[in-house]
Amino acid sequence: MPQRTMVEALNLALDESMDRDDAVCIMGEDVGINGGVFRVTKGLHEKYGERRVMDTPLAECGIIGTAVGMAINGLKPVTEIQFSGFTMQAFDQIEQNMARLHNRTMGRFPMRMVLRTPYGGGIRAVEHHSESRETYWAHTPGLKVVIPSGPRNARALLAAAIDDPDPVIFYEPKAVYRAFREDVPEERETMPIGTSQVVREGKDLTLISYGAMMRPAREAVEDLVDEHGIDVELIDLLTISPMDSETLCKSVAKTGRCVIVHEGHRTCGIASEIIARINEGAFEYLEAPIKRLTGYDIPFPYFQTEQYFLPDADDIIESVRETMAWE
């Protein structure tokens, strides 16, 4: 199986989807000849031409608003917002139209469209280039929110997002873009949206994370298992909304303990929602309070201090051990 980075894997998914279906088109800033600032659309302009790979004017609200119109027309636009910090410019069109047209028109105009965008910290970027504000979109009825963690699931989930009958916000962990390679099969592969994955089974504690934070989480699990004898069950959320409560609650019902890790802010963060769901679905099995390890409620710091904002493997190990020690 060929080894690919996440950037290459995403590129593969786009290529396959465009090859299969002329309705799939790409819109965004610098996605054409430049292949996107992270090169996710590299080569597609050459292969499919300007008709299907559209460099847009510099206006995110314009990109999403016109993509909504293209979707009304039956196309399946895959838009790229250069950094997730600039989805804020498009908030208007996401909220007013992308998320609601299906409901407003009672299904007459399905919104088959994807908003792809890199999110998260760890690349020493300037302000507005490191945010994790997935909560906004999880909070917006009508949207699906997907966050892959590695090349293989990124490819499979993006293919599924493009096929999905509903609008999908697809957050790409830019810290993972070129961080490692992974086997990604040649033949097309998809994964169901709305399903989380147990990536390691364990019986002592459930550790839940997603996106870029899956890397320190995996690192911590290795240490916890080997050095501390704690048998951790690790879950990769993959879809933030609609949330796979069943997988989460089933796991916690088994382990009785849970730690959640994400880089997004704490207040109304995704962990808050997970805790509520476990409360509703597995309260009687809990042996310790659920712990969340999150970004703080402050703007993402300037990059000389960003590493202190992000949870790391040591923090995760500590949180897991504290939760294990609770009686």
Partner: peptide, 11 residues
């Protein structure tokens, strides 16, 4: 220019 986008595509 706006990154790779020439004025002719911008406007």
């Amino acid at each position: 220019w706006a990154i790779s986008t020439p004025l002719g595509k911008q406007s």
